[in-house]
Nucleic acid binder design. Structure first.
Length: 817
DNA sequence: TAAGGCCCGCTTTTT
DNA sequence: GCGGGCCTTA
């Protein structure tokens, strides 16, 4: 790796590639032949088919480094697009590491959306927007849709709003403007009931029945008035601009001399068009992807984009990265055999020169709870090393589920046995209610015309402003053609909202004006008076009296929002206050509130990962791109995985996507992969039994070891009951199950597992007394009713009686019962 | 207007 | 089994 000094010398030395010092080509040395090819072929269209764990990011970053180091191109002439901020961040870091200096100078390395925001701010006027447009998140989107419906005198339910939003998203993903939507995609919707009509029998004139295309038109018009865009618009507007203004397009075709795209299999039509337009001139485009890992079809991704690449770019150079550096041969063989079941593939065969390792392990359980219990025990055993597997750290272990409701069983179990875990991709920080509320206050202070934000917080905390008062504000605002804040002011001034609510509203409006004034210092030229905001930029202001961090705290305190959560007695309230504190802390990284809001609208993630090694629990979708030494894949039952709904809605296409999901899951594992299923599972409170997943049938026998759960076949009490045997007989009659039983014969009925040393945290000796009031993160408040070693039995006020490990409890003796 | 009870409906999720 | 939304009631 070249040092910073060498880099400097190189920069100054010569523009010729021949003069390159030996050290600077290090980044090429440890590439394998396929990766090397992918990096060397800088010009023209390149498709890099990179299987799971084949070093795709490495090749991609080496390619960028190569472009820069051979001085063919400057950092700001490379367009490198990813899907997630995380991927963008990682790539920036790795390029920086390879270059030996921070890759700060790569302004066009980012997500599709972030790059489009930048571009659209420059050209907003071409689609009738101002360059300071706001970006709506999905919550705003739903609110807007409800508003639109109410303007045609219909109240829509949230579910209908969600549905309408998804229809509009879908149009945008396909890059259709309202007048470009094909007639076949037009739906007639009863806004009131959410019912859908066939066009022929659509009572079009009936009140509240509307064409989805007309609604889309209305929606777009409203966005323009609000000077706002949704996520889909970011792409759609840019495609429109490129298609309508060839001179603008040409400018960027020339500017972005090289284009790189990560996760190409996840692109939707709009993103595809955007890329094709930009690459149209020089065709220096390198797309990296894996058709076998396309798992986002349900949100508009088109596997077709990657399957069609060679047709789109004739003469494209296709290189396959097939050497896998991640998993053992057994794991790879299992993954390959499963994915082989798919018809539409470009075809790749992963191989590795790693040692054999463990076979993929397969185990069936009686029910979901037993599955969770078994996994918990297995993880405990893994920490000390078991069955030839080296001892593992908790952060080397992951549980990947198909649907998030599967997580609860694991969470409950792990809380009970005191196994530290973290849920990845749960409700994200910026999506939490309290964060959204706080952000709405900030938005409203920064831009008082943000009606959606006003609506969100006008009665949060409760100010006695219910439907009626809010309706009055809406009407007044609409009649006067002003924002809701101004409408509210007029309404109060004219005594349209009286009493307690009126007083509280007046306070809110005054507060907003006051806080807005605090975003800047005192006016410098003109002396003073009560003029707070005239929006004219020629007026200068001194430095603000408060930092934006202080201001944020002031807003939350004076608005009564902080107090609102302090007065709330639910178990979540303290956590929410914590989150608010965290939000204010984060402001430290930004110059002012505006900068922060801009950032958050695009980057909705927050890595507040804290201390200590923990087992990761996440969905298969969230696991893409990650790897773990040990992976558990629970819930492999037909209907759950593959998901029934996916198969019902999308047929074979849906099944194939599910199969790719299985492939993604297995290939996350480096050393140990454990697949499991349960015969019975409680779904929505109802017991259901199911057959092992058809994907289990597709696992290659030679690479699978069948484990036997203690208590199921090993003579545990459960299997003694007649009902149980009957259920077994009739549930487990799939080909996979039969084969599994046959294999069990091979391996012997049951393999007694070595006894477990459950790792107990020695510092966690219970120090609670009977009857003591305690608090638990998940279960809330409760009273101690029993103590056993480090486990404490607690009768929770809300959650019932549970045994939990003492270190998850906090004493709350100061609080009376 | 707000609070409490009841019913419905329910994958996957990034920007 | 749980949360959100709708309805009723005080």
């Amino acid at each position: 790796m070249s040092s910073f000094d060498e880099m400097d010398a190189f920069e100054g030395a010569s523009l010729s590639a021949r003069a390159m010092p030996a050290a600077s080509v290090d980044y090429l040395k440890d590439l394998n032949p396929a990766q090397r090819e992918a990096v060397d072929r800088l010009d023209g269209p390149v498709l890099m088919l990179a299987g799971a764990g084949t070093g795709k990011t490495k090749a991609l970053t080496a390619r960028i480094t190569h472009l820069l180091k051979t001085h063919r191109v400057r950092e700001n002439e490379i367009l490198a697009v990813t899907f997630t901020n995380k991927a963008a961040r990682e790539m920036k870091e790795r390029v920086g590491r390879m270059l030996g200096r921070p890759a700060e100078g790569m302004p066009w390395l980012g997500t599709f959306h972030a790059i489009c925001v930048k571009l659209l701010r420059r050209h907003a006027e071409l689609v009738g927007l101002k360059s300071n447009f706001t970006i709506l998140d999905t919550d705003d989107q739903k609110r807007l849709i409800k508003q639109l419906a109410s303007s045609v005198d219909v109240e829509v339910r949230t579910s209908t709003a969600r549905w309408l939003a998804s229809i509009i998203d879908n149009y945008k993903n396909n890059s259709w403007l309202p007048d470009q939507v094909p007639a076949s995609k037009e739906l007639w919707i009863d806004l009131e009931t959410g019912a859908e009509f066939e066009e022929l029998d659509a009572p079009k004139k009936r009140k509240g029945v509307m064409s989805s295309i007309d609604f889309y038109k209305l929606y777009q018009a409203r966005l323009r008035v609000l000077n706002a865009v949704d996520f889909g618009d970011l792409l759609l507007h840019m495609v429109t601009i490129f298609q309508t203004y060839p001179d603008v397009l040409e400018q960027y075709q020339r500017w972005f001399r090289y284009i790189l795209v990560d996760e190409y299999q996840d692109t939707n039509v709009a993103q595809y068009l955007w890329l094709r337009l930009l690459a149209g001139g020089h065709k220096n485009i390198c797309c990296v992807g894996d058709d076998d890992q396309s798992i986002y079809g349900w949100r508009g991704a088109e596997v077709g984009n990657i399957l069609r690449f060679e047709k789109d770019f004739p003469g494209a150079f296709v290189v396959r990265l097939e050497q896998n550096y991640r998993s053992t041969p057994h794991i790879l063989a299992a993954a390959s055999n499963v994915i082989r079941g798919n018809e539409n593939r470009l075809g790749k065969e992963l191989w590795t020169d790693r040692e054999e390792g463990e076979k993929v392990r397969l185990i069936g359980h009686w029910d979901g709870e037993e599955e969770a219990r078994w996994v918990g025990e297995e993880i405990d055993a893994m920490q000390v090393g078991t069955r030839g597997v080296r001892p593992m750290n908790l952060d080397e272990i992951a549980i990947l589920v198909r649907a998030s409701h599967q997580m609860r069983a694991f969470e409950d179990r792990f809380l009970t046995i005191g196994l530290p875990y973290k849920v990845i991709g749960g409700p994200r920080f910026y999506e939490r209610m309290e964060i959204r509320d706080a952000m709405a206050y900030f938005r409203l202070v920064v831009s008082p015309e943000d009606d959606l934000a006003f609506e969100r917080i006008v009665n949060t905390p409760k100010r006695g402003l219910g439907d009626k008062a809010q309706q009055t504000i809406q009407v007044v605002a609409r009649e006067n053609g002003v924002s809701l804040v101004d409408g509210a002011r007029i309404a109060v001034d004219n005594g349209l909202i009286k009493g307690k609510g009126g007083k509280a509203l007046r306070e809110l409006i005054d507060g907003l004006a006051r806080w807005n004034g605090m975003t800047r210092g005192p006016r410098i030229e003109v002396d003073d008076d009560s003029v707070i905001d005239d929006g004219v930029s020629t007026i200068r202001y001194g430095a603000p009296e408060h930092t934006h961090i202080e201001l944020a705290q002031i807003i939350l305190d004076e608005s009564g929002y902080t107090a609102h959560w302090q007065n709330e007695k639910t178990p979540e309230a303290p956590g929410r206050l914590e989150n608010l504190k965290e939000l204010v802390n984060q402001l430290d990284n930004f110059e002012n509130l505006q900068g922060f809001l801009e950032h958050v609208s695009l980057v909705m993630d927050n890595e507040q990962d804290s201390d200590g090694a923990k087992v990761s629990i996440m969905t298969l979708h969230a696991a893409k791109g990650l790897e773990f030494p040990a992976v558990f894949l629970p819930g492999w039952e037909d209907g759950l995985f593959p998901s029934q709904r996916s198969m019902d809605e999308s047929g074979l296409k849906g099944l194939e996507e599910e199969r790719r999901l299985a492939y993604v899951g297995i290939t996350r594992a480096e050393e140990v992969c454990t697949i499991s299923f349960a015969a019975n599972r409680r779904v929505f409170g109802q017991w259901q039994n199911s057959m092992p997943s058809r994907f289990i049938d597709e696992l290659p026998e030679d690479h699978v070891e069948v484990l036997t759960a203690t208590g199921l076949y090993g003579g545990g009490q459960q299997s003694a009951s007649i009902e149980t045997r009957a259920a077994e007989a009739n549930v487990y009659n799939s080909p996979g199950w039969k084969r599994m039983q046959a294999r069990q014969g091979q391996y012997g009925m049951s393999q007694p597992r070595e006894s477990r040393n459950t790792v107990i945290d020695a510092t966690a000796i219970a120090s609670f007394t009977l009857g003591e009031r305690v608090f638990h993160q998940k279960f809330g408040y409760g009273a101690v009713i029993g103590i056993e070693g480090d486990k404490v039995e607690v009768e929770f006020e809300k959650a019932g009686t549970k045994k939990v490990v003492s270190r998850f409890l906090t004493a709350k003796d100061d609080v009376p019962f």
